[in-house]
């Protein structure tokens, strides 16, 4: 039998945790194993999952993006406002995606061009967009447009008739993004350069790789994915709210870490991030099913998992040396 490459150990652990949580839930609660729970798990966590995919690229490159939650909230309120002012939804969605991309590129340019620490620049970005969200509209704003009211629902793929279970548009977006991002990471030069920079930036420079454009591209991509997460969130919430998704960046980072991506950069897996997001979702679902447990257990559980996975990464890294 071929020996397992140590870099896959965290990923394997992630898969085991995910299956164990799901199996545990199925054993403990009769309805847990239903198709509806599974579909909701994907649909409800789609927006955070998409943003986490963007964060995965950043973390693989050795950086960090704290602006995720603000970008999602900003995108949501911007779309709500634009649609409220009569913009066609498609135009509003594209415009917000473009803004996310440019915003990320600016963050990347500041980080690379001025050698500023990524956590500070994206912290600034997080503050800035949070404030700007309230400038756009200080209150939560419902989106009342036929596209949102009917089309989004109509695009859901029916799975079973009795009970009626559909595969929602949000979950579809999530799956498509994961597949596309996995391809980007594995099958393009850009993707491989991201890994190279995260593993050893000085080597990447000496090997003649385009470090500057790649780094700016990474943050632009993260901004784009966060904005896409924001778009998907509007499908799910049918509204925009400038005060929403505070602290979401931490969930995104935790998902990435639990998904087997090395927080020091160089190693990471997009499907792992998807599993990480689902693990967070499963914990939440389990706590909801339990009923008498409070939601704060989610934070503690995430914290403990984060600790375990960081310890695991450290142990694997130490053994390799």
């Amino acid at each position: 039998m071929k020996k397992i490459d140590p870099k896959y150990i965290p990923l394997l652990a992630t898969a085991v945790v995910m299956v164990a949580l799901y199996a545990g839930g199925c054993l403990a609660y009769p309805n847990f194993g239903s198709l509806r729970v599974l579909v909701n798990l994907l649909g409800d966590n789609a927006f955070i999952g998409i943003a986490a995919v963007g964060a995965t690229f950043v973390i693989i490159s050795g950086g960090i993006d704290l602006s995720v939650g603000s970008v999602i909230a900003f995108t949501g309120i911007l779309i709500a406002q634009m649609v409220g002012h009569g913009w066609p939804p498609m135009l509003a969605l594209s415009a917000s995606l473009f803004i996310g991309l440019i915003f990320g590129a600016i963050q990347g340019a500041l980080i690379h061009g001025f050698a500023l620490p990524p956590f500070l620049v994206t912290l600034g970005g997080m503050f800035f967009l949070r404030g700007l969200s309230f400038v756009v509209n200080p209150e939560s704003l419902a989106i009342k447009h036929p596209f949102y009211l009917t089309t989004v629902r109509a695009l859901a793929i029916p799975l079973t008739q009795r009970p009626i279970v559909t595969f929602p548009l949000t979950a579809q977006c999530f799956i498509v993004v994961v597949i596309a991002a996995t391809a980007l990471a594995i099958y393009t030069r850009f993707g491989r350069n991201v890994y190279a920079i995260g593993s050893s930036e000085p080597s990447a420079v000496l090997m003649g790789l385009p470090v500057a454009t790649t780094k700016i591209g990474i943050y632009a991509l993260a901004g784009f994915f966060s904005a896409l997460g924001g778009c998907v969130a509007t499908f799910y919430m049918q509204s925009g709210n400038p005060a929403s998704f505070v602290g979401l960046e931490l969930d995104a980072i935790a998902s990435v870490a639990i998904g087997g991506t090395l927080l020091t950069g160089g190693v990471g897996f997009i499907p792992g991030t998807m599993m990480g997001v689902l693990i967070l979702g499963l914990i939440q679902t389990l706590i909801t099913f339990q009923g008498n447990l409070n939601t704060w257990w989610t934070r503690i559980a995430v914290g403990v998992l984060l600790l375990l996975f960081i310890a695991l990464q450290k142990a694997v890294g130490a053994r390799r040396r």
Partner: peptide
């Protein structure tokens, strides 16, 4: 509004 306050803070950080 207190909600907009983070914006100038962000500019100061950068």
């Amino acid at each position: 509004s207190a909600d907009i306050a983070p914006m100038p803070k962000a500019l100061v950080i950068i």
